[in-house]
Design a protein around this nucleic acid. Structure first.
Length: 467
RNA sequence: GGCGCGUUCGUCUAUCGGUUCAGGACACGGCCCUCUCAAGGCUGAAAGACGGGUUCGAUUCCCGUACGCGCUACCA
């Protein structure tokens, strides 16, 4: 049995039942040591919905599995959300489960909520809604199909599976006393006043259990919105090991957080007006649950890179400089050894040229290293005897140049080429290689100007010795 | 196996039954520009899984098939 059609009509009705100001959504990750890109998007959709409706975004850490969860693992989540700019209205302030937090519906770590679960289980037990079985406690599940009114998927009628036909009841407290996910998740959503559960579609089947649990507690379940999953580019499930699966890989590879956010929001949601590059404000305004798509999306790294480039070229010079210096530092280049003006100008020649900040050290590291490491293949081609007199001649011209600026350098190089009866490229290639060690890089004349006469002549001399 | 969800260019998507040769973006091809590599400009190729219905008319609604994904734990 499937959903029914009139989805948009249902949306209109359902969303207006809730006072927009009282909407409360949550992101409830389990600290596993990494933040899955799909999890990051789930957090984003929750955050967007809260901001769009003027509601509250709550962060709750589902750290019931003490053996697996560490403080570092929580930090990965906290830092990941902060990096994306997804600030929470309620939730922990630190990765210490017993530490301070924002909000009055805490604790926001499940490990600190043990008594609440016990009380809730007692209540269930006393009503006969749950019972002990082989040391565990099982919930008496409804046998009839459960109707789920999903804000994204529509109406879903969930029947019992063949296994559930045998035994529809499920464990809510293990025999070792540990409460299980379905129970704690529902209890927390209930006690934290969550009005909308926005989560991955992988939870759609579980929702029947959750709805019955809410009912057993005597309350109406929250509204549900199951969002499509993010798959690998080839359509397979994205697991921990797949490249790009962890948000950390983006923070480390020099992506611009706004770009990642912008790209992510377009996976499974569309503003319906062909817009792609959008400001955060615009996204918040346009985002809503009814226009969340219903089919899984595949992750396209190339498009993310393109979008990252768009953000990179649009950002202010200061921001670009800041991110660039940070990237150089991480790659082991100490830009502080050089005058600030030199660093600024050097970085400036890379504007609009790199797609990722992590490309920068390889692209423009020559500005900040004393020794030029030459690409051997290119050296074999350009550092040849035939080029020696040509480069020697150019070196002399450069040495005698009045102003060592890009315009003069270009004029001088082209003039020299003409005098020698060769094309400019004949001089350009060996000079670039001599001064940068690479065959590709920033504009040659500008790079020479930034490097300055002394370094240029010195690097030319070193290259000349190899011809 | 059972239960659930899904299916428009390679990818992300637009299209709320009828001027659409099915639009945009990334990626890809060609041309131009050019000091390298890019970028930029112009341009090209590229899609409604399949089969039935409903309808004057279906990418759009319904059913079936195929395929994909999820769930099916004393994991979360």
């Amino acid at each position: 049995m499937g959903r029914v059609s009139e989805r948009s009509l249902n949306h209109a009705r359902i969303t207006h039942q809730v006072d927009p100001m009282s909407i409360r959504v949550r992101f409830a990750p389990s600290p596993t040591g990494f933040l899955h890109i799909g999890g990051a998007r789930t957090a984003l959709f929750n955050w967007l919905y809260a901001r769009h409706t003027g509601g509250k975004f709550i962060l709750r850490i589902e750290d019931t599995d003490a053996a697996r969860n560490t403080q570092q693992a929580v930090d990965v989540i906290l830092n990941g959300l902060r990096w994306m700019g997804l600030h929470w209205d309620e939730g922990p302030l630190t990765s210490d489960a017993t530490g301070p937090c924002k909000g009055d519906r805490g604790p926001y770590y499940q490990s600190q909520r043990r008594e609440r679960y016990e009380q809730r289980v007692e209540a269930l037990l006393s009503h006969g809604a749950a019972y002990e079985h082989e040391g565990a406690i099982k919930f008496r599940m409804q046998r009839e199909p459960v109707l789920i009114h999903d804000l994204v998927v529509g109406e879903v009628r969930r029947e019992l599976t063949d296994r559930e036909q045998q035994d529809p009841d499920f464990v809510i407290v293990r025999s070792d006393g540990q409460p299980v996910f379905h129970l704690v998740n529902v209890v927390d959503d209930l006690e934290m006043g969550i009005t909308h559960v926005i989560r991955g579609e992988d939870h759609l089947s579980n929702t029947a259990k959750h709805i019955c649990l809410f009912k057993a507690f005597g309350v109406h379940p929250p509204k549900y919105a199951h969002i499509p999953l993010i798959l690998n580019h080839d359509g397979s499930k994205m697991s921990k090991r797949d490249t790009g699966a962890s948000l950390t890989s983006y923070t480390e590879e020099g992506y611009v957080p706004e770009a990642v956010l912008n790209y992510l929001c377009l996976l499974g949601w569309s503003p319906k007006n062909n817009r792609e590059i959008m400001s955060l404000q615009e996204i918040v305004e346009l985002f809503d649950l009814p226009n969340v798509l219903r089919h899984n999306a595949r992750f396209d790294m190339e498009k993310l890179k393109w979008m990252n480039y768009e953000y990179t070229r649009q950002m202010s010079a200061d921001r670009f400089h800041e991110l660039a210096v940070h990237t150089f530092a991480r790659a082991g280049f100490d830009t502080n050894r050089f005058p600030l003006d030199y660093v600024k100008k050097a970085i400036d020649t890379c504007r609009d040229k790199i797609k990722l900040f992590s490309d920068l050290p390889g692209y423009a590291g020559f500005y900040f290293s004393d020794e030029v490491q030459c690409d051997p293949e290119a050296a074999a081609k350009d550092f040849v005897a035939e080029n020696k007199p040509r480069v020697t001649r150019l070196r002399e011209v450069f040495a005698g140049l009045g102003d060592f600026n890009a315009a003069e350098l270009e004029r001088a190089l082209k003039e020299t080429a003409a005098t020698l009866g060769v094309k400019a490229g004949v001089l350009v290639h060996p000079v670039r290689l001599a001064c940068t060690g690479k065959t590709a890089g920033p504009s040659l004349y500008h790079l020479l100007e930034v490097l300055g006469r002394e370094k240029v002549l010195d690097r030319l001399d070193k290259a000349l010795q190899r011809m």
